[in-house]
Amino acid sequence: MKCGKVRDLFSSFAENAMDGKLSARVEEHLAQCELCRRAYDRFRTTLAMLDSIPEVDPPAGFHESVMAEVERIKRTTPAPVKWWRVDWQHVFTIRVPARAVAAAAVVVFLFAVAFQFSPVRTAVANWFTFQKPTNAPIQYIDEYAPPAPLPWNPRTSKQELLINIDSQKPGQYLLRLGTNNSSPLNFELKVGRTKYDGSVQKGQSSTIEIPAPPAGSVVVARILWRMGEQDRLQWIFLPSKLKARGKSENAILKDFAVYDMLRLISRQHGVAIIASGDLSKKIPYTRTDHASPDEAFYESLSKVGMRAEGVAESVYEVRPTR
């Protein structure tokens, strides 16, 4: 028997788990081969050591931490009501006051009619269709910031809208939009209910002041920009305050849309994020353990065909992978 074959059988030999004939051949080999005999001794010592690895207690507070997380999950995910547990008999025998139902129907009808002709309808319609150009006031607020070179250049296209996020003034962001393109590039920027229309071209940028959100929340600016026939939508997530990079916190992401994840990461890590692409995609279960924003982005976004890149201190860009 060759040495290699004998060594393949060490475990079975040590555990007495081979038939007598084979076992005798291994023994015979060990008696003759000094090298294998030494190797087998070492092997036995190793087994003994592995078997004597001590058990340790989990860290203090481990149990409580697991149960606290379980409680949190329970609180945030209501137990589904199972259809077979519903008292169906009761459902079909509920007594409904007929007059009240009729009165409610009339009220709803009147309200719907009134709504058709009220200014509220226009406001609601505008809110849902911000992509339609409207005649909302255009605010050029260039006087807030002196023109300076944009700090970074997206590498993809000359027509690209350049976005500069300035957070020097506490409590507000200055978004400066610009382009390297010589023909005008129209944009609509919407933050909450406030809308800005404008256009930029090479050498003529536009600056918009956006109040920083209260601590712990994130404001999302949506920019629709047009170049000829081409429309593009970008989102900018702005936390209450930009933190220096490297600060890390835990997050468990499950069934989140990219949009929600970016809000979360912007808030938790205090970074601004400029995003484009389909943000409604659901990210599969992802956990970011004390990960830096780079890592969290990289991992969760790669699962939905997108990628993130740090473009400046505390500013990230997210876009679909080409």
Binding site: F10, A39, R42, T45, T46
Partner: peptide, 9 residues
């Protein structure tokens, strides 16, 4: 196990 024995040697 063989690898461990090797390393520990």
């Amino acid at each position: 196990r063989l690898a461990l024995a090797e390393i520990l040697e």
